[in-house]
């Protein structure tokens, strides 16, 4: 499928909540150093997929290998070791609202190593700079920031750990088109600069075309199409065509309940 070895290799992944089967045998390879974007409608299990890879949710069946280490069934120290490779930008930013921006940005760094406050502040300002925020933002509380700025701080927090793999959960949702483009540019440039592998989930097609190397289309808990972003418009797949053009009519039926 791809030249680079898979950084994350997922095989036959299944996850149910009660009687609801969210993931039904999902296969996906994320090649090292590239950016894969998973698209699909709401409720198709995109977020569940990310949480299973992080080990926040325990998969029912199947295998998730990160650099060859199995996540499914791993516990304690092993899981912590694997999580060290990840940084994640959450949909709403998920900033800790009791802490000022600079403590948010350096939270992960300070959890891993003992550093003084001055050093932490320096790291915070440096990473805020990477996402285009001035140093005086460092002392604000998250509630004082706009949605776009919260996303940028969330991004700074994710990259501050210099992770090998970055996850982006709907990075542009809820932002105006210009801010969305700024975030897309940042995602692109930061992952390139770090040489990181990126896995994003979104249903914003503008974002997909901007940040993706490869696209995977999720439908009913499986990947029904996978290919290079350049091939997205000639996938020959009715499901993909319907989704990328945003048509109500097509093989994908939206439940009315």
């Amino acid at each position: 499928m791809t030249e680079a070895p898979a950084k994350i290799a997922i095989r036959g992944l299944q996850k149910s909540f009660g009687r609801k089967h969210v993931l039904r045998g999902l296969d996906l390879d994320v090649p090292a150093g590239s950016s894969v974007v998973v698209i699909g409608g709401s409720g198709t299990g995109k977020s569940v997929l990310l949480k299973c890879i992080l080990g926040i949710l325990q998969a029912d069946q199947g295998s998730i290998r990160v650099d060859g280490s199995e996540v499914v069934g791993a516990s304690g120290r092993d899981l912590e070791g694997i999580r060290h490779k990840f940084g994640m930008l959450f949909q709403g930013g998920a900033l800790f609202d009791s802490l000022p921006v600079w403590e948010n940005v350096t939270f992960g760094v300070r959890a891993r190593q003992r550093i003084g406050r001055d050093e932490a502040r320096r790291i915070a300002v440096e990473n805020l700079g990477k996402v285009g925020l001035a140093a005086d933002v460092a002392d604000l509380m998250p509630a004082e920031l706009s949605g776009g700025m919260q996303k940028r701080v969330g991004l700074a927090r994710a990259v501050a750990l210099e992770p090998e793999i970055l996850f982006f959960d709907e990075p542009t949702t809820g932002l105006d088109p210009i801010m969305a483009d700024v975030i897309n540019d940042l995602i692109r440039s930061l992952t390139r600069a770090m040489g990181a592998t990126a896995l994003s989930i979104t249903h914003d097609m503008a974002s997909v075309r901007k940040i993706a190397d490869y696209v995977a289309m999720l439908y009913e808990g499986r990947v029904i199409w996978y290919g290079r972003v350049e091939d997205l418009d000639r996938s020959g797949n009715d499901f993909v065509d319907q989704f990328i053009h945003g048509r109500a009519e097509g093989p994908i039926t939206v439940g009315t309940r």
Binding site: L54, R83, R157
Partner: peptide
């Protein structure tokens, strides 16, 4: 509900 608890997990805490 704002995923801050999940965020802690991803920040080695």
């Amino acid at each position: 509900v704002t995923e801050q608890i999940d965020a802690l997990t991803t920040l080695s805490t």
